[in-house]
Design a protein around this nucleic acid. Structure first.
Length: 248
DNA sequence: CCCTCTGTTGGATT
DNA sequence: CAATCCAACAGAGG
């Protein structure tokens, strides 16, 4: 185990290096020699047992695990046999949280709604979790309502469902909830499939933009050709097609 | 070179 | 409540 940045090791789900665990490196070192168990996921969080210890992981905005030579911005390296896997995280919002194996599952799900893929909800159940006047796009990104959608996949799911991102969540029709329920699952499944035989991880890693509307302001909608629009919702850029996703 | 803007997350503040 | 700011850093553009 190699710790390049002790502040990547946190005591709780925090995006801030200042919330580093004081004895973080020692707590991580306690995992050395343990046999890895089956990793678990809930929303954007990971839990990885190394009984009797374990590790909770959040990649933040820019975190990734990469094998091989030490990359720039390496925070922690874990050795598995001959291979070293590096936690690389330029923006330092990612967190590695030591946690007893017995507590992993609880802490993994604490404060989160159901996982958008593992516990996908049919339309009516989805609607029940979104009784708010907040814009549907903002509500979709609230991990306490539904866990797993961030800025990119919330926008992409709304495009698939043909729903304008600024519509108040509690104003959607039954048909729209049904469409959104399917769109969320389809979006996440397709995104995961694309990553398994490609490397479409982040927009900034070079290569073409793999998304239908995200990051495509002014470009033609892939469905109707209308220029993609961009607005800010909840302080974040949101992309949509003004024709396929009509305003409320 | 310097300054400003933007960003894949999430929490606190206003 | 909804909008704004902030954390921390890099890259792009003026």
């Amino acid at each position: 185990m190699i710790v390049r940045d002790p502040q990547a090791i946190r005591g709780d789900w925090s995006t801030r290096p200042r919330d580093a665990l004081p004895d973080g490196p020692a707590r991580l070192a306690a995992l050395v020699g343990a046999e890895a168990g089956e990793p678990m996921r809930h929303g954007k969080r990971l839990g990885w047992p190394f009984p009797p210890g374990g590790l909770l992981i959040h990649l933040g905005m820019s975190g990734a695990w990469v094998p091989g030579e030490e990359p720039p911005h390496a925070r922690v390296g874990l050795r598995f046999g001959d291979a070293v896997w590096w936690f690389r995280d330029p923006r330092r919002f990612g967190a590695l949280i030591p946690c007893p194996a017995a507590r992993l599952a609880d802490r993994l799900a604490a404060g989160l709604g159901p996982d958008a893929l593992l516990a996908a909800l049919p339309g009516p159940a989805l609607a029940a979790r979104f009784r708010t006047r907040a814009a549907i796009k903002v509500a979709l990104m609230d991990q306490g309502r539904l866990a797993g959608l961030g800025n990119i996949h919330a926008a992409e799911a709304l495009f698939r469902a043909r729903i304008h991102p600024a519509i108040p969540a509690n104003a959607l029709s039954d048909d729209q909830w049904e469409a959104l329920s399917r769109a969320i699952v389809d979006q996440l499944r397709d995104a995961i499939d694309a990553q398994q035989d490609g490397e479409l991880v982040y927009l900034t890693e070079g290569g073409p933009n793999p998304f239908a509307v995200y990051g495509r302001e002014g470009e033609p909608c892939p469905r109707c050709g209308t220029p993609i629009a961009r607005i800010a919702l909840g302080g974040r850029s949101t992309f949509y097609c003004p024709r396929c996703q009509p305003a409320p």
